[in-house]
């Protein structure tokens, strides 16, 4: 079986005028289907940079990124948009919902850019909303929801197109601990019951405790890659 994600010696260099910041210095990583991975590390260690590359929001300066065996690191902007639409789901720290747009319309957003919305899709959105405990909030606007509810809407939007990979950059960073637990149990549920592969970034060890594998970055390099301490199941290591 192919790895869903295979990163091979990834570099990301930001150029700001005369300055060059090397945010990633040769990251190699592989993630298998169904894994639940936490990425940790100090601020500025390159976690978001890595997530953006994994999420096809950005391209690496050097190195190869294979998503389901396809090299996406040399894809054009348009091809990347297509990949984001079909294979990836992204959850942000600040939710990033469209503000004057209803919950349902936010969730169906990925469909707008891929197809005509069918009866099937509408049923599916309902189903997902029920799973995530959002039933009855269809016509609400994001600012009428709590932070945890907003983040669940964002998760619904991220999984509505059955992504190969769900990426979450500090999904609980703006939430209190009770709501964080709530969101983490949603993600755990998606991973365990629906088999969705999840990579999330966090600063908190107890959040990382929900996952099965912890990758620690330091100065743009992988410092360690170990099974999560609280996880009972051993994790297959990158080659």
């Amino acid at each position: 079986m192919h790895d869903i994600v295979l990163l091979n010696d990834i570099y990301k260099i930001y150029t700001m005028g005369e300055f060059k910041v090397t945010a990633l210095k040769g990251v190699s990583l592989s993630i298998k289907k169904g894994e639940f991975v936490a990425i940790m590390g100090a601020s500025g260690s390159g976690k978001s940079t890595l997530m953006n590359i994994l999420g096809c929001l950005d391209s690496p300066t050097k190195g190869k990124y294979y998503l389901e065996g396809v090299e996406v690191s040399r894809f054009s902007k348009n091809e990347l948009a297509e990949i984001r639409n079909k294979k990836l789901g992204f959850v942000f720290q600040n939710f990033n919902l469209l503000s004057r747009t209803t919950v349902v319309e936010n969730i169906e957003l990925p469909f707008i850019y891929s197809k005509k919305i069918s009866k099937n899709d509408i049923d599916k959105i309902h189903h997902i909303m029920r799973i995530l405990g959002l039933d009855g909030f269809q016509k609400h606007y994001p600012n009428q929801l709590s932070g945890g509810q907003q983040q669940r809407v964002a998760i619904a939007r991220a999984i509505v197109n059955d992504p190969t990979l769900l990426l979450a950059d500090e999904p609980t960073g703006n939430l209190d601990s009770a709501t964080s637990k709530d969101v983490m149990s949603v993600l755990t549920n998606l991973n365990q019951n629906l088999g969705i592969t999840i990579v999330l970034v966090t600063h908190e060890t107890d959040i990382a405790g929900y996952t099965r594998r912890v990758v620690v970055l330091k100065d743009g390099k992988v410092l360690s890659d170990t099974p999560s301490s609280s996880s009972a199941i051993p994790v297959v290591r990158a080659p």
Binding site: G55, L57, K77, N78, A81, E82, R84, N85, K86, F90, N96, L97, L98, L109, P110, I112, Y113, S114, R157
Partner: peptide
């Protein structure tokens, strides 16, 4: 701009 970013993140192409 942020709205544009969100749309792009979920797969809006340049032409969209």
């Amino acid at each position: 701009t942020r709205e544009i970013g969100i749309r792009m993140a979920v797969g809006a192409k340049e032409k969209d």
